[in-house]
Design a protein around this nucleic acid. Structure first.
Length: 123
DNA sequence: GTTGAGCGTT
């Protein structure tokens, strides 16, 4: 199994596209494109795990520098995941109690212009 | 409707 790092991807490229592309050079065990966690948009790079290093090298040599939508792909061997923490486990949120914090003087009488004068002329 | 270096789960 060989990990491949693909960068300089177009923002519209999906994992399926990578998988399909790399499948032409060998068996793709894993295909993943990293997305923005905020905007849910693609970061423009992803990962591919191929079954054999032979197909991986072939794919790298074939796809590296490939011009896609005016940009050339950057395909290379990926770094180990162990260098960086994959993910933070979901943390359970403690009691979030909503405290009604009233500030002194906050309830001061709001000026009501209409209240000071009666428009109704009752005579 | 936007943006563009870099290495992992949106």
């Amino acid at each position: 199994m060989t990990n491949i790092f693909i960068a300089n991807l177009d923002w519209e490229i999906t994992s399926e596209d990578l998988k399909t592309t790399f499948s032409a050079f060998g068996t793709v065990l894993y295909a993943h494109v990293v997305y923005e966690k905020d905007t849910k948009r693609s970061k423009g790079f992803g990962y591919i795990e191929m079954e054999t290093a032979d197909g991986a090298i072939a794919a790298i040599q074939a796809l590296n520098g490939l011009e896609v939508n005016g940009r050339k792909l950057d395909v290379k061997i990926a770094s180990p995941k162990e260098n960086r923490p994959p993910r933070k486990e979901v943390v359970e949120k403690p009691y979030v109690k909503k405290t009604f914090d009233k500030k002194p003087g906050s309830f001061s009488s709001r000026s009501n212009p209409r209240n000071s004068n009666d428009n109704k002329e009752n005579k």
